[in-house]
């Protein structure tokens, strides 16, 4: 999401749950160096908590055996790690080339004007957040929208309006 400059603290300690922990250990055995686990650990943490907090960074550093600054460096370099809570439904609209040519802007405008969901923001009720992202690799079925990881292809305003209703 928009602000990637600072970490937010939850005030609560973070730790992997049992299932996540098992996946961490399975993956850790696959790499000859521990630092390779920073990215997988950040993914696992985000999967569990929804976003990466200051406590998560500390925890991942401890588990991997590295400095928190190194984890912070990767969490900010790689844009898919959320450093802020996102909405219950996190919407990504592809902004690049083929989606641009097939009117992705109509989708962004619809979300902003009618649904009140603006790029880089979380809606007041916390249900939706929106991000305009770079090429999502679905150019042959552009424009494409990704909601909580699921792809919706050949999108248009009518389809998206109907889809949002089912999410409500």
């Amino acid at each position: 999401m928009s602000d990637r400059s600072q970490l937010l603290a939850t005030g609560k300690s973070f730790a992997f749950d049992a299932e996540t922990d098992a996946e961490f250990e399975r993956l850790a055995a696959r790499y000859p160096i521990r630092e390779s686990m920073i990215m997988p650990a950040l993914w696992l943490a985000q999967q569990q908590q929804g976003w990466i907090s200051a406590e998560t960074i500390e925890y991942v550093a401890e588990r991997v055996g590295t400095y928190p600054a190194k984890v912070f460096e990767l969490a900010t370099f790689y844009t898919m790690y959320h450093l802020r809570p996102v909405g219950t439904y996190h919407i990504c609209v592809c902004r690049t080339l083929s989606c641009y040519l097939r009117d992705k802007q109509e989708i962004v405008d619809f979300l902003a004007d009618e649904a009140g969901i603006r790029p880089g923001q979380v809606s007041d009720d916390g249900r939706f957040s929106l991000e305009e992202v770079e090429c999502l690799g679905h150019c042959g079925s552009a424009p494409v929208v990704q909601i909580n990881g699921e792809f919706y292809e050949d999108m248009n305003v009518e389809k998206l309006r109907a889809l949002l209703t089912t999410l409500a």
């Binding site: 990215m39 997988p40 950040l42 993914w43 370099f77 790689y78 898919m80």
Partner: peptide, 10 residues
């Protein structure tokens, strides 16, 4: 064979 996930860097 191990899958390593990127995180949004072209």
């Amino acid at each position: 064979v191990t899958v390593h996930r990127g995180a949004g860097a072209y």
